[in-house]
Computed example of a mutant assay.
Amino acid sequence: MVFSQIEFISGGSLDCSGGHRYSARGTAYYPANNALEGGFVDMRGHNLRTLQDYLDGKASYVSVAMDNRAGIPYGTAICIPEMNHKHGRNIVFKVVDTGSAFFGKGHSRIDICVRSQSLSYDSTINNHLTLVFP
């Protein structure tokens, strides 16, 4: 199933054809050892993978945080057309993290992992995003 999720992302158009679509409010977070950001690892103890590391070819996906009580399995791949268009290629996002800000939000809220605080102010991320699930 993991292969089919990656194929779903990489085989589709920048608009993320197919799948289930949800409207969400996007925000960004970054690896930092403080209460707000939550550390350097995801909810299962794996290192966070940033958008910039993915774009630099240093990561196979981008870590995102969502409501872990919404029935979204750990590692689920998501396609986000707004981010694909901004960067001119398909980006693989995976739900691997959560936090108290997401409890009860379902599919309506997503936090995308970026490299630093200054990059967390990205106007595309901090906006309305379309989440496409396989």
Rank of each mutant, 00 (worst) to 15 (best):
M1D: 05
S4M: 09
I6H: 10
F8W: 05
L14A: 02
C16A: 08
C16Q: 06
C16H: 04
S17N: 15
G18H: 01
G18I: 08
G18D: 02
H20E: 13
R21I: 01
A24L: 00
G26K: 01
G26N: 03
T27I: 03
A28D: 00
P31A: 14
P31I: 10
A32K: 08
A32I: 04
A32H: 15
A32Q: 10
N33P: 01
N34I: 12
N34V: 14
E37L: 01
E37D: 13
G38F: 00
G38A: 06
F40V: 05
D42V: 10
M43I: 01
R44N: 13
H46V: 07
N47Y: 06
N47D: 15
N47P: 15
L48E: 14
R49G: 08
R49F: 11
R49L: 12
T50W: 06
T50P: 03
L51Y: 10
L51C: 08
D53H: 05
D53C: 02
Y54C: 02
K58R: 14
A59P: 09
S60K: 11
S60E: 14
Y61M: 12
Y61D: 14
Y61V: 09
Y61R: 10
V64T: 14
A65S: 09
A65C: 10
M66N: 09
D67G: 11
N68C: 09
R69G: 14
I72Y: 10
I72V: 15
I72F: 10
I72M: 12
P73G: 14
G75Q: 03
G75I: 01
G75K: 04
T76D: 07
T76L: 11
A77L: 03
A77P: 05
I78W: 08
I78Y: 04
E82W: 00
E82H: 03
E82V: 06
H85L: 12
H87W: 13
H87E: 11
G88L: 11
G88P: 12
R89N: 07
R89G: 08
I91S: 05
I91F: 14
I91W: 14
I91K: 00
I91N: 04
V92I: 15
F93T: 04
V95S: 12
V95Y: 00
D97R: 12
D97A: 02
T98D: 00
G99C: 03
G99D: 05
S100H: 09
A101Q: 07
A101S: 11
F103V: 15
F103R: 13
G104D: 04
K105G: 01
K105V: 06
G106W: 12
H107R: 13
S108D: 06
R109S: 11
D111S: 14
V114Q: 12
V114P: 02
R115D: 00
S116T: 15
S116G: 07
S116R: 05
Q117N: 13
L119A: 15
L119Y: 11
S120L: 09
Y121S: 11
D122Q: 08
D122H: 05
D122F: 03
S123Q: 07
T124H: 05
T124E: 10
T124K: 10
N126E: 05
N126G: 06
N127I: 01
N127S: 15
H128Q: 04
L129I: 06
T130S: 13
T130D: 02
V132W: 00
V132Q: 08
F133I: 15
